[in-house]
């Protein structure tokens, strides 16, 4: 009996080792490392925004509206005289906040449902997967738009809307992983020894699903940030005066011809952030040796 257990553990360890995140490889992937550094930089911006920003992002000074970049206002001011530089920096709080919150919620929910679905199978699997299909039948930006729009603008609506549209990706991914893992000998052996499925899921299956989920999660932060700013851009997400990049872009449109920095800098900030997460995610995926996932790419 113990012999069997040992053997199971050995094969599992070997399997894990073979799949283990290759940090050497990741380190070599310069773009991926720069992605991680950019993320660290953004986190610092968000955490220390009050110290870094030279002005109050909400403070209006009507006498100094639409100023061009200067030493006082590095990115200029908007039509109400608010410092764009400060607003852009405070914007990292909102965008990263939404991104992390949504990804944390959806990855946990999606992973749990995927585990259940893949491991239990049967009717439960059928039901969960049909729900996944139904949610995925809507282009996700459209579903998010409708939910956020009808709930009314605001931080929580955006988070709720995006959480509702983004969880199925994890459920599908994890279910696929579970199905392929289930066939592997060590899970079979563990089943024979210890039939509690919760134990097997926690101990044997979940750890093996984590890496693809982390990759997906990293790339998803990028998607979520784009979606959130798109919602705000359309006027259905975070609204002025809150310094959200998408809504700042929207506010800049009337001045596009004359003072284009109003739209330029917030847009650049979105690209910069999304780029960082995309790079890190791609690098992680390459280090894990995972093939480019169409579904992840599709959004």
């Amino acid at each position: 009996m113990t012999e069997v257990i040992e053997k199971t553990e050995i094969t599992e360890k070997a399997y894990l080792a073979e799949k283990r995140l290759n940090f050497g490889e990741f380190g070599k992937n310069r773009l991926a490392v720069s992605g991680l550094l950019l993320i660290a930089f953004l986190c610092i911006l968000a955490l220390f925004a009050p110290r870094i920003a030279p002005h109050d992002p909400l403070a209006q000074r009507l006498d100094s509206g639409l100023l061009f970049p200067s030493t006082e206002y590095p990115f200029g001011t908007d039509e109400l005289g608010r410092c764009i530089f400060s607003r852009v920096i405070y914007g990292t709080r909102i965008s990263l906040g939404i991104g992390l919150l949504v990804v944390a919620a959806t990855s946990v929910a999606g992973t749990s449902l995927g585990l259940l679905s893949g491991y239990r199978g049967g009717l439960l699997d059928e039901v969960i997967m049909r729900v996944v299909d139904i949610v995925m039948a809507f282009p996700n930006i459209i579903l998010a738009l409708v939910i956020a729009g009808l709930l009314g603008p605001g931080f929580s609506s955006v988070v709720l809307a995006l959480a509702f549209t983004q969880w199925p990706a994890y459920a599908r991914l994890v279910r696929g992983q579970v199905l392929s893992l289930r066939k592997r000998a060590f899970v079979e052996a563990a089943r024979a020894l210890r039939p509690s499925s919760f134990y097997i899921m926690r101990k044997h299956i979940l750890p093996n699903c984590m890496e693809p989920v982390i990759v997906l999660g990293t790339l998803e932060i990028a998607h979520v940030i784009i979606f959130a700013s798109a919602l705000s851009f359309l006027g259905l997400g975070i609204q002025a005066p809150d310094p959200e990049w998408g809504s700042m872009l929207k506010a800049g449109i009337p001045f596009l011809r004359t003072v284009s920095h109003l739209t330029f800098f917030p847009g650049l900030m979105i690209i910069f952030t999304v780029f960082a997460f995309n790079f890190a995610g791609d690098g992680l995926r390459d280090s894990l040796g995972q093939p480019a996932d169409q579904e992840v790419l599709a959004r």
Partner: peptide, 14 residues
């Protein structure tokens, strides 16, 4: 990769 990171609304404005 840069293209994937550019939101289409910003590209449109540009």
């Amino acid at each position: 990769l840069v293209g994937v990171s550019i939101p289409n609304f910003w590209l449109g404005l540009l």
